[in-house]
Amino acid sequence: MTTLGRILMVEDDPRDVELTLTALEDYNLANEVVVTRDGQEALDYLYCRGQFATRPQDNPAVMLLDLKLPKVDGMEVLQKVRSDERLKMIPVVVLTSSHEEKDMMRSYKLGVNAYVVKPVDFHEFVNAVKELGVFWAVINQPPPGSVRR
């Protein structure tokens, strides 16, 4: 593992955050995760505004996006990212509890790269998150302009 991409996680539930980070710890990926707690904060990170004003100007290697978020919801974040010339190349993985076909259709129409339903079973959840992390942060070649360590 020579280079690791940064993972931007957008998740409002602290327990989900903890469980996801626990799952990623096994692969030493947890340190690469930036956690934002709502859509507004995620956009602040992407545009280097507010508390993220001083961060380097690179894009994350992947964004793990929950759909149901306070303030600005996941769909809106996705729409903003896809309509911005500088951000539209960021791979976006929707990680949600929603099985609804409606959500799936809308996400794919907005150009999401993957849609993952959080499994209730913890082992499955851990595996799903690990595989996501490994695939997007390690195996996948992120688009040029992404942050690397």
């Binding site: 539930d13 327990r15 989900d16 149901k68 509890s97 099985h99 609804e100 209730v120 913890f122 959840f125």
Partner: peptide, 12 residues
């Protein structure tokens, strides 16, 4: 679908 499943996932 969305809200009931989340606490369950945490429980597990």
């Amino acid at each position: 679908s969305h809200d009931l499943r989340a606490p369950l996932r945490h429980l597990v």
